[in-house]
Amino acid sequence: MGRTSDAKERILSAAQTLIELRGYSALGVAEICKAAGVPKGSFYYFFASKEDLALAVIDEHWAVQRGDWERILRSDDPPLQRLRRLFEATQAVQHAGQQSCGTVSGCLFGNLTLEMSNQTEALRVRLQQIFGAQVDLVDEVVTEARERGEVTVADTREAARSVVAQLEGQVLFAKLYNDTGRLDLLWANCLAILGATASAATVSAAGGAAAVTAPGQEAPAR
Score class of each variant (00 low, 15 high):
Asp68Lys: 02
Arg124Lys: 13
Trp69Lys: 12
Asp59His: 05
Glu51Trp: 10
Pro220Arg: 11
Leu114Asp: 09
Leu80His: 13
Cys190Asn: 09
Arg146Gln: 13
Ala63Phe: 11
Tyr177Glu: 14
Ala122Asp: 02
Ala196Glu: 04
Leu114Phe: 06
Val164Gly: 04
Ser162Phe: 01
Arg82Val: 04
Thr17Arg: 11
Gln98Asp: 01
Thr103Lys: 14
Asn189Leu: 10
Gln119Phe: 08
Glu20Val: 00
Asp6Leu: 04
Arg85Thr: 03
Leu112Gln: 02
Gln119Leu: 12
Arg84Pro: 07
Leu112Lys: 05
Ile19Gly: 02
Gly97Lys: 02
Glu31Gly: 02
Asp179Ala: 04
Pro78Asp: 15
Thr156Glu: 06
Leu53Arg: 02
Phe47Val: 11
Ala201Gln: 01
Ala206Asn: 11
Leu55Val: 04
Glu218Ala: 10
Arg148Ala: 15
Ser162Asp: 08
Thr143Phe: 00
Gln134Ala: 13
Gly41Met: 10
Thr152Gly: 08
Ala54Gln: 00
Ala219Gly: 03
Gly195Lys: 03
Gln94Ala: 05
Asn118Arg: 15
Pro220Gly: 09
Pro215Cys: 04
His95Asn: 12
Ala35Ile: 01
Ala133Glu: 05
Leu27Met: 03
Gly2Ala: 14
Thr120Ile: 01
Phe46Ser: 11
Val138Ala: 06
Ser117Ala: 06
Pro215Leu: 00
Leu86Lys: 05
Asp77Leu: 02
Ser199Pro: 12
Tyr44Arg: 08
Arg161Gln: 14
Lys40Thr: 03
Ala160Met: 08
